[in-house]
């Protein structure tokens, strides 16, 4: 018995097992790759080879459908995590020079009631994207439009590098510290409002979502209202409009003052 050889055609176990397995696999392949594509009435193939390839999963690029009527311009920035993560010293330096003209509005000194955002310590990707959108006219603002129009691609990268490099000044306007409102921590799931914290910090951070802590409450509220009314529409694929339009005015107030009061 120990001399019984397994891998030989005279061993019935070998031939049966191999035959059954190969037969089953071949039948399954025939069924899946040849018969089934043809059994689907609503599919058109240019030949058997095309049918087999499509069933096997050979890919093709999704067809491009040219949108006929462009309703409003949308952002053309490609956002990825870790973009603009490692700025050079030269870039930061040049950004600092450029930022002299921004300081009137965006310095942190008068942030409490400011309608302008506070930028020190903001993510580079966020600064870059907003400048890009201002320049392209996708985000509309009478002050920022002309400023951004004059910036080159490198200028925007440098400004982003500079502001993300600046340390955030601890907010000097701590509020009553009422704790985290439900809209920030839980959102309102069935209204399709995820927690603010899942993108804007406190729980997680999504690429392209600005840091909101210590931001001017007036600014936050204005922007949420602009998203809700679609007056502002440079958020990629409506990701912020989807949320803001379903927030109640009270929730907008809560979220704005919560983030403004965070250090």
């Amino acid at each position: 018995m120990s001399s019984e050889r397994l891998f030989t055609l005279s061993n019935r176990w070998f031939t049966t097992a191999l035959g059954l397995t190969a037969g089953f696999a071949a039948a399954a392949a025939l069924g899946g790759l040849v018969l089934l594509p043809y059994a689907q009435p609503n599919l058109k193939f240019s030949g058997i080879w095309d049918a087999i390839c499509s069933a096997a999963g050979v890919s093709r690029e999704a067809a491009t459908v040219a949108p006929s009527a462009v309703e409003a311009k949308t952002s053309a920035v490609v956002m990825t995590s870790r973009m603009l993560n490692h700025p050079s010293a030269a870039s930061i330096g040049h950004g600092g020079t450029l930022a002299l003209q921004c300081a009137i509005c965006h310095s942190g000194d008068n942030v409490t009631r400011s309608e302008f955002p506070y930028l020190a310590g903001q993510y580079a990707a966020v600064i870059y994207k907003e400048l890009h959108d201002f320049k392209a006219g996708v985000r509309v603002n009478a002050i920022m439009g002309p400023f951004a129009a004059a910036l080159t691609e490198q200028d925007m990268i440098d400004l982003a590098a500079y502001y993300s490099y600046l340390p955030r000044v601890p907010a000097y306007h701590p509020g009553p510290g009422a704790g985290e409102p439900a809209i920030v921590l839980s959102g309102a799931p069935l209204r399709n409002i995820p927690p603010c914290a899942s993108c804007h910090g406190a729980a997680d951070n999504k690429a392209g979502s600005p840091r909101l802590e210590g931001q001017s409450p007036v600014y936050l509220k204005t922007q949420l209202q602009a998203f809700a009314s679609a007056a502002r529409r440079n958020d990629i694929s409506e990701q912020m409009r989807n949320i803001a339009r379903r927030m109640t005015p009270a929730e907008i107030d809560q979220a704005a003052s919560f983030y403004a009061e965070r250090p």
Partner: peptide, 25 residues
Amino acid sequence: ATMPQARVETADPTTLHIAGEFVES
């Protein structure tokens, strides 16, 4: 006629909003 999707199609997720059939409009 409940069969899996017949073709594999690809689309770059980072540029869905810029070009192709999945632009916002």
